[in-house]
Structures are given as structure tokens and as C-alpha cells.
């Protein structure tokens, strides 16, 4: 009887250990996927920031060029008699 009880205990321990390893494997998969998701989000943040910075730079350049063009247009249109001569 004792031998049979020991065998069953050993089998239960083995099943429990196997289940524990399966749970650990599942958790490791989940954590790996979460880390991948985190890496993706980090990379996305970096690319988005660079794109936004380049866009901001372009917009600044455009703003300055538009200001320059406004000034040039104002100086060119200051003497409209030049454009009226045929």
C-alpha cells in the first residue's frame, strides 16, 4: 500500500511539475510577445518623432520662405507703375 501511495504521489508531483512548466512556458510566451509589442511601440515612437521633427523643420523653412516671399511681394508691388507700362 505504501509503495502504491508513493507511486501515486510521485505521479502527482510529476504532473504538477509538468503543469508548472507548461504555465511557465505560457508566461514566457506572453512576456516575450509583450516585450515585442513594447519594442514595436518604442520603434514606432522613434520613427514618429523623427518624422514629426523633419515635418516641423520643413514647416519652419516654409514659414520663413513665405515671410521672405511676402516681403519680396510687398517690395515688388510697392511700385505698380512698372507693371502698367506696356
Amino acid at each position: 500500500m505504501a509503495r502504491a501511495g508513493g507511486i501515486t504521489n510521485a505521479v502527482n508531483v510529476g504532473i504538477a511539475v509538468q503543469a508548472d512548466w507548461e504555465n511557465r512556458e505560457f508566461i514566457s510566451h506572453i512576456s516575450l510577445n509583450v516585450r515585442r509589442l513594447f519594442d514595436f511601440l518604442t520603434q514606432f515612437e522613434a520613427t514618429t518623432k523623427s518624422k514629426l521633427s523633419s515635418l516641423n523643420q520643413k514647416l519652419d523653412t516654409l514659414e520663413r520662405r513665405l515671410e521672405l516671399l511676402e516681403i519680396q511681394v510687398s517690395t515688388a508691388s510697392a511700385n505698380p507703375s512698372l507693371f502698367t507700362t506696356s
Partner: peptide
Amino acid sequence: VNDLLDEKVDEVSGTE
């Protein structure tokens, strides 16, 4: 977000 950014970049290029 990426599509929106590309669209804005295209708009800025057109504006340039």
C-alpha cells in the same frame, strides 16, 4: 498615425 504623418509630409512637399 503613420498614414497621417505621410499625408502631412506630402502636403508639406506640395506646399514647398
